[in-house]
Structure formats: C-alpha cells, structure tokens
Design a protein around this nucleic acid. Structure first.
Lengths: 244, 244
DNA sequence: CGAAAGATTGAGATATTTCAACTGCGGTGG
DNA sequence: CCACCGCAGTTGAAATATCTCAATCTTTCG
C-alpha cells in the first residue's frame, strides 16, 4: 500500500505527502522509537489498558473500535500512514478504544513521557503532536456531520471520497482504490447495515459514479472524485433538524 | 449556572470540579488572558477565521456549529465551564466551526503562541492542553458511538445523561436540569427531527424516567441518572452492523 | 394582549432495517 | 480433483423506525 510511487495526483498534494514523511523522519531521529509489525486482527492496544505510549502508523491501516459496556462494537475511526493512535488515552490514563490492524503494517510506539521531554528540545515535535490531535478532532466533527445530516447513500459516497483523499494525501493513486474492509465493517462505521452499504454501492455503480473491478468487489474504480461530491450534494439530504 | 454551590453530588466529583477550577486558576495566573462576555447568539469565532487563539469557557455554555458548504448547519459539540474551544483550528490554521454562545457567559481567550511559550516554563499548562484535546477526542468518539448504534429514544436518554454528568462534574445538582436548547437544537445535535425529540421526551416522562417541571418544559427532573442508563440498555438497539 | 416562536401530538409517507434466498469464491479434506 | 462448507456479497420483499406534514396548544416577549 505504501510502496506505490507518486502518481496522478497534483503537485499540491506533495505538500501533504511530504509532511507525513517529514513527521516520521523527525520522530525517528529525535526519539527512541520501538517498531512493531502487526498482522490483520492484531491489536496495538486495548481499551482500558493504562496509557503510556502513543503510536504512529508507518504502514498498513488500523481501526479504532469502541466496545460499549453492553457488548456492542463500534468502529469509530480509521488510521493510515502518518496518523497517531492512542491520543484518546492521555486524558484519563487509559485507552478508550481497541486499536486493531486491518492488514499487515508497522507501528511505531513512543513513550508519552519521552515525547514530552524531547519536545522541550525540539518544539517541532510538539507542533506535530498538536496538529495530529487537532486534525483528529476536526475529522471526528466531520464524521458527526455526515452521520447526522446525510442519508445512507450519501454517507457511502462520502466515505469513498474520504478514502480517496486519504490516499491522495499520501501520494498514492486514487482512481483505483481497494477497500480492505467488509461491507459489515463499512456499515458499522457509517451507522447502517451491510445490506444498505451493498445497495448504495450498487446504485453508485449503476449511476457510473464508481465502477467495480473485474474481480473482487472491494476494488473500486473512481473515475473522478468530484462526481462523488456532486452525488452527495445532489442527494440533497436534510434529515437532521435545521438549526433555525 | 456556575454560581450554584456544590450539592447532592458525591465527594468523588469534587475531583473533577476541583480540576476545572484549578485549570482556570492556573491559566489565569500563568498567562495573559483576555476576558470577554458574550450573550446568546454571539459567536466566539467563526469557521474559516485564521487561528490565533484558544478559548476557555469560564461561564455560560457554547455550541460548535459546522456549516457544510451546501448550507446545512450541524451542531457538533457542546461546551461548558472549563472546556477549551478552538482546538480544531490548530491543524490547518483556521477554525473549522462557528463557536456560538447559547447563553450569557464569559470566555477567556489565550494566544496559542503565548500558551506554548508559557508552557515551556509551566509544564502543567501543556498537560492541561493535552488533556483537553484528548478528552475532546474521546468525547466525540462517544458521540459517534451513540449516533451509530442507538435508536432515537436511547440517544435522547444518553443526551440527558451526558448533560447530567456534565453538571455533576462541575459540582452542580443534577436532579433538576434546565436544557437551554430548543427541541430543534437537540434534534440537530442528535441526528433526528425535533418531533422525534419531543416524542422521546414524552415517552421518557410517561415511563417516569424523567419528569417535566411545572412550567417550561425545558426544566427536566431526573430522579435517578441510572434510570436513564438502564433505559438506554433496555432499549437494546443494534441498528448498526455488528462487526463480526 | 397579541404575535411569534417553541412544543406536542397524530396520521400518512418514506428511508432503512430485517429476514431470507441466492451467488460466487476460496479453502479443505476425502 | 472435486465436493463441500463457510464467508462475503447481492438482491428482493415485508417490517419498522423515523420523518414529514399538519393541527393544536403553550410560552415568551414586545
């Protein structure tokens, strides 16, 4: 996933891809980093464990699963190369979610106390941490917006766009993406059933907004990302109450 | 709202109420703080404005409104005494939402650069900032969980419980709460229509989980918070797809 | 007091879920 | 090698939660 070279994305995206690379480089040279390779299903940490370290995704991708007391499992976030994990654990000293690998990948772990100490020498480290947290907050706000105000099909379109943007940010090609998630996982993340996800994808394909690859209906071709955006708006949804 | 003395809440809550007071005190003495009084409808800052400062709620309460490009307005967060605002602006240098007062209240503003500088002298400041961001992330994860996995009525119950806990954390009484929001605002926040909110509240009242005050149906009496929790579970909802 | 905004409630419309049948695919073991 | 099983996905039809629309009532405020 991370091995692919830069591609059809515009030169502007280099900024983002560059930032991610710089982050990893800076962390690696300013701090003692412990690297660990995980396989699909392995967990980086589990909800409730005492918080000591933050983690950075070097490769692969990861899901954050919040298991409520009553046993329901909710996928509350996805994380890719350059993303930080475990930020939700700082506040009360325990991680709030399970972080689980969805594919083979490498995780770097950094002790939080070591990070703070190093940050006093290298302010850029602190800056990066704050940006990561801030981005996470803004991203989750987007999730809430989408969950509250878009009908199911538009949420699926938004999800695909999000995935494509994520790849673009990392300098990867976005015209052909491979969702490494089952329909059930996508549905769980988007607050709908797997059947609804399936139907939404089928309709997007019928409308030629996306196309399925020959084999494996997890490979999705997105000729133009703007088509997804247009679709989300065209599906003019106002299910949530307008504010005034 | 903030003036009420400690009350029926247990001694354990003092920790949280104390933390909030300590936070405000520490910030005030370690930093140049600019105080501003706002009235209902006034905005602390608006989406898109260049990020320079963070804000702390000293009194009153505030909503974060994310206005999507297409003009839909979504309430993505509520903030009370001791909460930090503007954290979503750090990452890309602009605030992502409007922050709007829902009542008369006082906001403290702190320049981000000044905060970072002061933090190098006073590590506790940094700690507080990180806790605030981490708490915000964890809180939003809860929102997503609730939106995805609970039916409407349970979300309303969860909302009331959240509000009660927020008051408890601040050392205020929780048996009698005043929602300073219209049904439309609550519905917008919870991803449902105002009618559904109204019906849910009516049913909660009919089931004696809550009680309305004599006048003003915004004053709600919550005899026991656990009843809300029990109700949320009893309303055993699994609308979102189970993960496996 | 009267107007405007907020809230409640009912009944029909609709999006999404649920349940069920069917397909394709990959592995596994006889 | 093939039969078989289980998992992922698709699709249809019925069930249901929520929304929409509309009427009515209450509260607030100038």
């Amino acid at each position: 996933m991370i091995t692919s070279p830069t591609s059809t994305t515009s030169r502007l995206d280099q900024g983002m891809a560059g930032r991610i690379g710089d982050t990893l480089r800076l962390v690696a040279e300013a701090l003692p980093v412990q690297r660990r390779v995980l396989h699909a299903g392995d967990s980086v940490y589990q909800a409730g464990q005492p918080f000591k370290s933050l983690y950075i995704v070097n490769s692969g991708f990861f899901k954050m699963v919040n298991s409520s007391a009553e046993g329901r499992e909710q996928l509350v976030g996805l994380h890719f190369r350059g993303d930080w994990l475990g930020l939700d654990g700082i506040a009360d000293g325990r991680y709030a979610c399970d972080a689980v690998a969805m594919d083979t990948g490498e995780i770097w772990s950094i002790r939080y106390d070591a990070l703070l100490q190093a940050a006093s020498q290298t302010p850029a480290l602190l800056s990066m941490l704050h940006c990561a947290m801030s981005r996470e907050i803004a991203r989750e706000q987007q999730s809430v917006l989408s969950l509250c105000s878009l009908p199911a099909e538009a949420r699926v379109a938004g999800f695909l766009r999000y995935w494509a943007e994520t790849l673009a940010d990392r300098g990867l090609r976005t015209d052909q993406i491979t969702l490494r998630m089952t329909r059930a996982e996508i549905g769980n993340y988007l607050g709908m059933t797997l059947e609804t996800v399936s139907r939404a994808l089928s309709r997007l394909a019928r409308g030629d907004v996306i196309r399925f690859a020959e084999k494996s209906r997890r490979d999705i071709c997105i000729p133009q990302v703007e088509a997804l955006t247009r679709f989300m708006q065209g599906d003019l949804g106002t299910p949530a109450t307008p504010l005034h």
